[in-house]
């Protein structure tokens, strides 16, 4: 089943045509990797789904973007509600300057949850889901800034999971991390895909190959090709895809 669909999406930043007629579908409970050289529009495309592009004032978006069959750019759509459903993890770990506990509780609190026991239970569960519980369970009251970069990123994943999204957007979630932390994040993505629809932007071809079920190749604002990851990496139909994944440009 398709969790997300876009039909002929065009996006302009002022005069710059950043996305050119993108139509594609994202399958539910799978991992879709978006790859392509810097500036190809893959991160912009990712940010469509939680309407993060709205924060840029010069942006203009056309076309249909459907999450669970509903156009999320229709008038009257509650953006805060959408962002509860579509969580996001960023390139640079960005925990809040609060305790580890409060970092996770934050998303619950801003969404009106006050029940202490419920929050505690959800914090623990989210940390367990992001494989961080064992490392932090004795220091929940400590600042999140005391954690290593990799731990901070898993904290940010836990923070996103705490409000129970069904879609998880990941914008190069491991590019600022060391190889061991990267492996942990990748294992985590593998675990999470049973319950979540994950879209990951990555510059790392091996990573796309390891974690994703389907891969989409973007180039100069266009979607060149999308297929099973296996097919993209072994038998791409388009010569530009082939050149990119074999490292001949990009």
């Amino acid at each position: 089943m398709n969790k997300i669909e876009t039909h002929n999406v065009n996006l302009h930043y002022g005069d710059f045509h950043a996305l050119k007629g993108i139509s594609m579908s994202i399958v539910e409970n799978s991992v879709t990797a978006l790859i392509g050289p810097s500036g190809c529009g893959k991160s912009t495309y990712l940010r469509l789904f939680n309407r993060m592009n709205d924060l840029i004032s010069s942006v203009k978006i056309e076309g249909d973007i459907l999450v669970e069959g509903k156009d999320i750019y229709e008038r009257g759509v509650d953006v805060d509600e959408l962002r509860k459903k579509v969580g996001m993890v960023f390139q640079k770990p960005n925990p809040f300057p609060k305790t580890i506990f409060e970092n996770i509780a934050y998303g619950l609190r801003v969404n009106g949850i006050k029940d202490k026991a419920f929050i505690e239970e959800r914090v623990e569960r989210s940390l367990q889901q992001s494989a961080l519980w064992g490392e932090v369970k004795d220091k929940l009251k400590k600042s999140a800034f005391e954690l290593s970069g990799g731990q901070q990123q898993r904290l940010c994943i836990a923070r996103a999971l705490a409000i129970e999204p069904t879609v998880l957007l990941m914008d190069e979630p491991a590019s600022a991390l060391d190889p061991i932390s990267t492996t942990k994040i990748e294992e985590l993505i593998y675990e999470l895909k049973n319950q979540y629809t994950i879209i990951i932007v990555t510059h790392n071809m091996q990573q796309a190959g390891r974690v994703s079920d389907r891969t989409a190749f973007f180039y100069m604002g266009e979607l060149i090709e999308i297929d099973e990851t296996k097919v993209i990496f072994t038998n791409p139909k388009n010569v530009r895809t082939q050149n990119y994944i074999t490292g001949r440009f990009g």
């Binding site: 993060m52 960005n94 998303g107 923070r159």
Partner: peptide, 25 residues
């Protein structure tokens, strides 16, 4: 840093919640 604001907004917080609970402190 803007990443704190964006992190908060991405969790479904409103601009006011973001300002009051993350940015202002």
């Amino acid at each position: 840093d803007n990443s704190f604001r964006i992190g908060s907004l991405a969790l479904g917080a409103t601009k006011w919640q973001t300002t009051r609970r993350v940015v202002m402190p």
